[in-house]
């Protein structure tokens, strides 16, 4: 079976610092994997390399069996992989709907001109992440952290991914908002979305993942069922002092 995402011997050096140190793993079709590790372990850097925002120093990233290492970020997104950011990055002057509109656009100037926005889809996406009708015309400066994360999810979902990488989806959210986002992820899992989810909130993460990968100092230190990974002694030690 060809894997949706396959990472082989990924290395990323920032000067003297090795942020990703020979990392290899696969994601399984329709499965959800947790990526955990203390601050600075290298989780976000892995995402950035998968999306092509950072070029890896060495190693291979394959999407459905083909090497995407030379592709630009938009080209990777068109192949069906998309991510959210730890710090949400909405378009500041745009309404919720306009933000989603950009994600829904095809990368073709001709189609942008000749085809109008798909308003029903924009609204459907906004409502599906938990916005209310009243929120649709709001701009990001009036939104709470929870709403910004919802918008980040909606913008990412708008690109129609088959694989979603979620970076610290629960950071800064209330319990109610965590439940909302968790429900959304569960719904997408039922629809066979493949996930790689980074979260510090292990309790919130547990029900959302099939298994987990723990990293520290850019290296994989444990991998397997979530419960086994978090009870691994190396993982527990790595988290000491950071929680």
């Amino acid at each position: 079976m060809v894997k949706p995402l396959s990472i082989k011997n990924l290395v990323k050096n920032f000067g003297g610092l090795t942020a990703t140190d020979d990392i290899s793993f696969d994601l399984e079709e329709g499965q959800s994997t947790g990526l955990i590790g203390p601050n600075g372990a290298g989780k976000t850097t892995i995402f950035s390399q998968i999306m092509g925002e950072y070029r890896q120093t060495s190693g291979i990233i394959e999407l459905y069996g083909s090497d995407i290492s030379k592709l630009s970020t938009p080209a990777r997104i068109r192949l069906g992989i998309s991510r959210t950011y730890q710090v949400p990055r909405p378009f500041s002057d745009f309404s919720v709907l306009e933000n989603i509109r950009v994600g829904l656009m095809p990368d073709s100037i001709w189609k942008m001109i000749t085809q109008g926005p798909n308003r029903e889809r924009e609204i459907e996406l906004a409502l599906s992440v938990g916005f209310s009708e009243d929120d649709l015309q709001q701009t990001p400066d009036t939104l709470s952290m929870g709403d910004l994360r919802k918008l980040e999810m909606a913008r990412t979902m708008a690109t129609n991914p088959k694989i979603m990488l979620l970076d610290e989806v629960f950071a800064g959210l209330t319990v109610g908002e965590i439940n909302q986002i968790a429900k959304l992820i569960q719904n997408m899992r039922k629809e066979n979305m493949t996930f790689l989810i980074v979260s510090h909130d292990l309790k919130a993460l547990e029900p959302l993942v099939d298994d987990a990968i723990a990293i520290n100092y850019g290296k994989i230190i444990a991998q397997g069922a979530f419960s086994e990974v978090i009870s691994d002694s190396a993982v527990r030690t790595s988290y000491l002092g950071t929680e």
């Binding site: 630009s72 909405p90 950009v102 990368d107």
Partner: peptide
Amino acid sequence: SVKGSGLS
């Protein structure tokens, strides 16, 4: 974010 929306 334009790139992140899949546009060049």
